[in-house]
């Protein structure tokens, strides 16, 4: 095999060393820094974009929070107003109800008074009529009318008895 012919061993080792050294220089000096630069730039760009996205997300969250706070505040205010309005309405209605009840009671009282007076008057008239009637009946039956005082006394007694 030509591989075991030592004639060109020295030459192969020499050219291997030379070419490897040149390749090392080319790689270390030009190629690797360029690739590293591109990769770093890309990872930086990605990290930058991620950071930006994170910032935007935080901002959006802050906005949502503020919006929700405003919403909660408005809701609180509305419910406060509603409660106040309901209270006012309740107060007004209670007041009106009380006024109405007072007026009603007054009217009832007046009516009751009127009824009582009428009743009294009626009772008095009934007595007078009864006295007159008693005298007239007695006069027809007996032919002599009892005097008014006696008849009134009898009628009073009779009224009390039925009374």
């Amino acid at each position: 095999m030509p591989q075991f012919d030592p004639q060109y061993f020295a030459s192969q080792i020499f050219w291997l060393a030379v070419s490897f050294a040149i390749l090392y220089w080319l790689m270390a000096r030009f190629v690797l820094p360029r690739i590293a630069e591109v990769l770093e730039e890309r990872s930086e760009r990605i990290a930058d974009d991620l950071e930006k996205a994170e910032t935007l997300k935080t901002e959006a969250e802050a906005v949502i929070e503020a919006y929700e706070a405003a919403l909660a505040k408005a809701r609180g205010e509305a419910s406060g107003l509603l409660a106040k309005a309901a209270q006012e309405i309740a107060e007004v209605s209670a007041q009106r109800q009380a006024e109405f009840a007072a007026a009603l009671a007054k009217k009832t009282q007046a009516a009751e008074d009127r009824i009582a007076t009428a009743k009294q008057e009626a009772t008095a008239q009934v007595r007078d009529i009864a006295v007159d009637a008693a005298r007239a009946i007695t006069d027809r039956l007996v032919g002599a009318a009892p005097d008014e005082a006696a008849a009134a006394a009898e009628v009073d007694t009779a009224l009390k008895g039925t009374g």
Partner: peptide, 17 residues
């Protein structure tokens, strides 16, 4: 005494580089 001839092997090393 060293034979450091530029051979086909050396040429292909240079080609690889």
């Amino acid at each position: 005494a060293l034979d450091l001839s530029f051979t086909n092997s050396a040429a292909f090393m240079v080609a690889a580089v």
